[in-house]
């Protein structure tokens, strides 16, 4: 075995031991389902900001976004403002009202706001299905990175990643995951910071790199995409992030509404740092290797061939962190949807806290293992799966969450119609007119959300209003007694 391999194994082993230790620590502080799903509502703004950023930053950022900058240059960076418009919408319209409500899951919100068990069940089922698809993409990315860098079979990387992530998640739930997310955010930034000077030094600085890239193609350093294309893609990202269940669940775990606001700001600052580092690395790799066969290989080649063994190993651990931090958030949201919203409501309403904790933990394992099979079938490329599933989630959740929290008159029939209709419209557009996006510039997510909004308003107007008692916690500034933070540390 070469010394480079030993360095990598040592770095990965130290990382896995640390996250497992945090998992065990979380296990010792987890005695109820509330501990497991919302960490006793104890998370502060710094850890919370890292949680929100780490959940959003995934394999898509390290592989897909870096590859996009490699191929098209600078202008893709402006897409981040679309994501931040989504976060701003969440901070203004979603987070305060959602956090005041002392729930455990996003389906809890749907059930309470619309006074409907059917809407709650539909929301939980949609969360489980769509996030299982999302997990497939994350596992596939881990397999592809491992086979590109080390030539090992993808299944080995997937098993290592899911075993480690499922272990710390099932042991300590949100409490462990939050502190692991904090560590993972630091590792992502460290990996990127180690890479940036290496590529810049090769060119003698930023300006010579820019001049070289401009000589390859002036669009790389200026505008590859038109403003219309940037706005259309930004809108899709914004709609997705304004009401993403795996992010909203984490609001419940923070101390209070103001903590959530600060955490969103810290998360945006972290995203700006990570996004601009990924851009510089993508540009640098284009300068170093102008004709790679696939843009998605840029990040793996950077770690394996450009950086020193130790720095390359830390960069790869940063990539693993990006994947694992997204996977743990998904496992928590899908396990919670199964255990809290389906099992405890439909199968065993008298379940004890110990039983619910056990079902949550078993669900983490089962819902983590199922996507491995899908990942091995390779139904599509990673970035495409990530983008498509997020469009579907926005198409059924944006309206019931963002408009549902702003408009009292929305009803349960309106919510069910909005979720089902938004999903169907997004699906129909994806398989028909999406192909001619270049001519009309209208994305499937915009069609899905527009249809969802139309159905929500029309059907709600035609059906009886939601009982005032259900709405008080969202619209009358009444805090739910369950929403308070219970210190345990």
């Amino acid at each position: 075995m070469s010394s480079d391999s030993l360095v990598f194994i040592a770095v990965v082993a130290a990382y896995l031991v640390t996250v497992t230790a945090i998992g065990i620590w979380g296990y010792l502080h987890t005695t109820t389902e509330e501990d497991f799903l919302v960490a006793g509502r104890s998370i502060g703004p710094w850890v919370g900001g890292c949680v929100l950023a780490a959940t959003q930053i995934s394999a898509g950022t390290f592989v897909g976004t870096l590859g996009r900058h490699y191929f098209t240059g600078v202008s893709w960076i402006w897409i981040w403002f679309g994501a931040w418009a989504g976060w701003l919408t969440s901070a203004l319209l979603v987070a305060p009202r959602l956090r005041r409500f002392g729930a455990l899951t996003v389906a809890d919100y749907i059930g309470q706001r619309f006074a409907s068990e059917r809407a709650r069940t539909l929301a939980a089922a949609l969360i489980i299905v769509s996030y299982t698809i999302y997990l497939t993409a994350q596992f596939q990315a881990s397999g592809e990175i491992a086979s590109a860098v080390f030539g090992v079979r993808p299944i080995y990387a997937m098993v290592l990643l899911i075993a480690s992530t499922a272990l710390y998640t099932l042991l300590g739930g949100v409490r462990s995951s939050s502190y692991v997310d904090f560590l993972q955010t630091m590792l992502m930034m460290l990996g990127l910071f180690l890479g940036v000077p290496v590529v810049l030094q090769t060119f003698g600085g930023l300006q010579p790199l820019g001049q070289y890239l401009e000589s390859l193609d002036p669009r790389i350093t200026a505008w590859w995409f038109s403003w219309r294309e940037i706005l259309a893609t930004s809108l899709a990202f914004g709609l997705t992030l304004a009401a993403a269940p795996y992010e909203m669940t984490r609001y419940y775990s923070m101390r209070d509404v103001q903590t959530v606001r600060y955490a969103i700001g810290i998360s945006m600052a972290i995203q700006a740092i990570i996004g601009s580092s990924v851009m510089i690395l993508g540009l640098g790799m284009r300068g170093l290797f102008p004709v790679l066969p696939s843009a998605d290989q840029a990040s793996s080649i950077l770690a394996a061939s450009v950086m020193s063994p130790l720095a390359g190993a830390l960069f790869l651990v940063g990539m693993m962190s990006a994947i694992m931090s997204t996977v743990n958030s998904i496992l928590i949201v899908t396990a919670g949807a199964f255990a809290h919203d389906l099992y405890a409501r439909l199968i065993n309403p008298r379940a004890s806290q110990q039983r619910l904790l056990l079902v949550n933990r078993v669900a983490v394992v089962v819902l983590g293992v199922v996507p491995v099979w899908f990942a091995l079938q390779r139904f599509g490329d990673v970035q495409a799966i990530v983008v498509e599933q997020s469009k579907f989630i926005a198409s059924f959740f944006f309206v019931p969450v963002v408009i549902g929290l702003s408009w009292r008159r929305g009803t349960k029939e309106g919510a069910v119609a909005a979720m089902a209709g938004g999903f169907a419209a997004c699906l129909a557009w994806t398989f028909t007119l999406q192909r001619s996006f270049a001519t009309h510039g209208i994305d499937a997510v915009e069609v899905g959300v527009a249809m969802s909004a139309l159905l929500f308003v029309v059907v709600s107007r035609l059906t009886p209003p939601t009982p005032a008692a259900n709405l008080a916690v969202f619209f009358d500034g009444v805090s739910d007694a369950r929403s308070h933070h219970t210190p345990v540390l």
Partner: peptide, 30 residues
């Protein structure tokens, strides 16, 4: 040959302004 232009540098200025404005707003909330 000028290298990077305002599509590059403009992002850093705009992002810093956006985040600073966000924190000013957040601090003024209850």
């Amino acid at each position: 040959m000028n290298g990077f232009g305002w599509s590059f540098y403009g992002f850093f200025i705009a992002a810093a302004a956006w985040i600073a404005a966000y924190f000013v707003w957040a601090a003024r909330q209850r």
